[in-house]
Design a protein around this nucleic acid. Sequence first.
DNA 1: CTGAAAGCGCTTACAG
DNA 2: CTGAAAGCGCTTACAG
Lengths: 345, 345
Amino acid sequence: MPRKSITSYDVAKAAGVSQSAVSRAFSPGASISKPTREHILKVAGEMGYQPNAIARSMSTARKDIHQKSGMVGVIVTRLEDPFFAQTIAEFSRGIQAQGWQMLLFTVDTEAEVDTALNTLMQYKIDGAIVLSAILSDQMARACNTQGIPVMLYNRSAEGLNASSVEIDNHEGGRMAADILLEAGHTRIAFVGGEEGDATSTRRQTGFEERLAEAGRQIFRHETGDYTFDSGREAALRLFARKDRPDAVFCASDVMALGVLHAARNELGLRIPEDFSLVGFDDIPSAGWAGHALTTIRQPVRRMIKDAVDNLVESMESPALPPRIRRFEGRLIIRNTVRQVGSSSP
Amino acid sequence: MPRKSITSYDVAKAAGVSQSAVSRAFSPGASISKPTREHILKVAGEMGYQPNAIARSMSTARKDIHQKSGMVGVIVTRLEDPFFAQTIAEFSRGIQAQGWQMLLFTVDTEAEVDTALNTLMQYKIDGAIVLSAILSDQMARACNTQGIPVMLYNRSAEGLNASSVEIDNHEGGRMAADILLEAGHTRIAFVGGEEGDATSTRRQTGFEERLAEAGRQIFRHETGDYTFDSGREAALRLFARKDRPDAVFCASDVMALGVLHAARNELGLRIPEDFSLVGFDDIPSAGWAGHALTTIRQPVRRMIKDAVDNLVESMESPALPPRIRRFEGRLIIRNTVRQVGSSSP
DNA sequence: CTGAAAGCGCTTACAG
DNA sequence: CTGAAAGCGCTTACAG
């Protein structure tokens, strides 16, 4: 027995004004006298009236102007990953704080991003955030002609008409190499993401570059998929052979924790006595006492605030050109890297 | 230079048919001939036309019928918590699989749930999911009269006109007590959520009930807020005194991991040699090799599938009465509880 | 400041 | 099966 919800006409009748007046009472800058607005708001409150956001969005469509829905679409893969969970949580708060709603779309592979965005566009989102994935050139153009700004997070744009916010992966890779070289390591392994993964590739490139400056190169390369289990398996492979690495750099904390747990509890190795370990991201569990993972921290809060602010600006001024922003990571020294001098007898 | 997006009128003109025909071509069961539909779909495809979901939602509003938007609102607190991250990830996939979109609202305290729901209702959501929180009686009624079914997850309803899916917390508490009693423990502490937290209270009640049956009671009670840090602090308090517990049951895995890390790495205690530890939920990191936490598993997949299916049914048949569903947890024995007989010399 | 009216892009009885 | 038209609940020029 659902009843029809009450509309601005109902309120108008009850308040003895026109429907336009009711609409104006609920529009912040509208031209309406203070007493009229207050009276209407009072009557509306008593009746439990709430403006219909869908109808508002509908009527907001004008010639050559993108229809405003008040919603921003967010596309994410692997939401169960702590790094993304934290990211989505921050985005959600940030978007709400600015008065927008978040339409969330979960995708399993990067290939689905275009389709997801397409679906979201049918809902007339005012802007889109794509996490750790890239969209096609064609899709970027479609967003562009429809006046929908796109923000790439944890990826960068390169020629696509999209803003982006990401960590300086190359420099982060260099930092990781730095501390491992400083500790005197020589057989340094790298556990990265799958072949072609942009983030992992950049971290690796920076890492190798710094290694090369010291006359070294990666001792062994393993591939994972950013899950704990893939880190665990990489560790098993890494330490199965006789010539073991004396240090491991992982392209993410989650994988590093997989390495750490497998090494300590399945392989009986000590960290950092038997090998040093460095991660990337600084997710909450990296700091837990029993992990104390040395890692490269991403300033997530600042990065997300920047991303949200920039997207909001673009949604409000569609003419704004896209902006690419890169943040610096910071080395967080905890207990998984051998101290200089404390190693050799 | 955003261009106006193309509408069904544009397609109609290009295809030489009426606008109604275009609309029908995109409505699954509509009365339209196969050749006409195919022709329209072809032309539309070439033009890149996509129906406007907002307009569709608008025109779907009819007398005494709730306007369908195709969106379900989801309200969550603490999305950064692994348990909720996993939950939201599953909900997102489940909702999408059924053809709905997810409008996500993050809230900091339970008091904000009503307001959040109110906002979501302005967007004419077809249904709502509230995670680990309860809404007011009044709000439940408002949803009811507007024909919006509400699904409570991880909470139960009791008289509210809302469906719910949750674990049997009472029985889960009993299970935890069971294994601890069986291991021969006598000084059993409990780390729960804040005063009045429904979930924690139920787990505690079941736990105490089983303890009482064995002629025992809780040795010490600590309070946390479901965060890792609060578990850590509870452990510090618990083991600061001379008369220490020999077992700890935590109302969540996250808190149990806080206890575990603090005990091992800050207090120098061994688990289960110095005390046994049991958690609740079985989040992914509970199973990591270095944790191997004994816990009560929630069948999350099944629970969420059930919740989504039930909500979808209610959205499609508004007359359906709410349904309360409780799932059984399962004891997952790992390495944090002392084996029987291996304790005393 | 206020009201009457057009328009947003669809869906769906209503007639043919 | 098909088209003309009303209607969904708003916003916003346009006149007063």
